[in-house]
Amino acid sequence: MKIIGSLTSPYVRKVRIVFLEKKLEAALELENVWDAKTKIGSLNPLGKVPCLILDDGEAIYDSRVIVEYVDTLSPVGKLIPTESRERATVKTWEALADGIMDAGILARLEATWRPAEQQSQAWIERQMGKVDAALSQMSQELGENAWCHGNQMTLADIAVGCALAWLLLRFPKLEWQTKYANLDGLYQKLMLRSSFIETIPPAA
């Protein structure tokens, strides 16, 4: 199998971490979707990464679909519960984490891609408001628990860890670590795992 993606995409990182935690191998083929010469459209018509290419050539996307598929490939380190209610809870955590990145990316694009005179501060504030609300919800739901759900690491923790790491990379002045000490505790614990260490994005 082959993962098409970039080193800085938090969605790609989530997929790579799941592969590592499941003890499965997949080559990483780097692709810059913002490059005019990108060929990602021939694999994913939405033009997004990650995209997983299976051994038979079939393409699977997006990250939520990929990680759910990969979790079925090996019984090692089950990351998504099979029981429906627990499964929904873990996937809701993932949706919340992905939502942080979705909103953050929209805010960042507005501030970096559009000329200053065309930028909408109201739009940026709206997106960052979503980030703040999601962080607050995460902190409330985590409470004093060791993990987001249950007594061991799940996909919920991986997704949250990727979102928090991306915020540190792209919004270093947000200071969520000071405001939400329990989230920082979870983040620091995750960053000790080899899967997170091996996928640290370049500081760019």
Rank of each mutant, 00 (worst) to 15 (best):
V33K: 03
L20C: 03
E58C: 02
S84V: 15
M128S: 02
G143C: 11
C148Q: 15
A95G: 00
D102A: 11
F19S: 12
I60Y: 03
K173T: 09
L109N: 05
T112N: 10
V90W: 12
G161P: 07
K2I: 10
A181S: 14
E86H: 07
R114V: 08
D71W: 02
A59G: 01
P50G: 12
D35E: 10
I200S: 11
G47N: 07
L96H: 04
I197L: 12
A103K: 09
N44V: 08
I158L: 10
A27R: 11
Q119P: 10
L186Q: 13
H149G: 11
P50W: 10
C148Y: 09
V76T: 08
L135E: 06
F19L: 15
I197N: 10
M191I: 07
A95Q: 07
R64K: 14
I197H: 06
W147P: 14
L52E: 04
V33W: 12
H149R: 14
S195E: 14
I3V: 15
K173M: 04
V12R: 05
E58W: 00
I124N: 05
N44A: 07
R85D: 01
Q188R: 06
S9R: 03
I17H: 06
R85K: 05
I197V: 15
P75V: 07
R114L: 09
S120I: 07
D98Y: 12
F19T: 14
E83M: 02
I105R: 05
Y11N: 12
R108W: 11
W34Y: 13
A163W: 00
M191A: 08
R193P: 09
E21P: 08
S9I: 03
R64F: 02
W123D: 15
A181C: 09
Q119D: 07
S136I: 01
G5N: 01
D56K: 03
A165F: 00
I80L: 03
C148G: 15
P201C: 10
G5K: 01
Y11A: 13
D56I: 08
L155N: 09
N44C: 05
G150K: 15
A181T: 15
A26T: 13
W123H: 15
K23D: 10
Q137P: 04
M153V: 15
I124H: 06
S120G: 03
L106G: 00
T178Y: 06
A134V: 10
I197F: 03
K22Y: 02
W147H: 15
N32C: 04
M1P: 13
S42L: 13
E29H: 12
L142M: 12
A122Y: 09
Y180T: 09
A88W: 00
P81C: 08
Y11K: 09
M1Q: 09
I200P: 03
V49K: 04
A59L: 05
Y69M: 00
L168V: 01
Q140P: 05
G47M: 10
E94K: 06
E25P: 01
A97H: 02
N145T: 13
A146P: 00
A146G: 14
A165C: 06
S139E: 08
E31Q: 11
G99I: 08
L79S: 04
I40K: 01
A59Q: 07
L164H: 07
S84I: 15
L169F: 01
N44F: 08
W176Q: 04
K48N: 04
V65K: 12
P201F: 06
T178H: 05
L106W: 09
C162S: 02
P81V: 11
I3S: 04
W93P: 05
A27H: 13
P10N: 03
K130P: 01
E141V: 10
R85T: 06
R126F: 14
S194L: 13
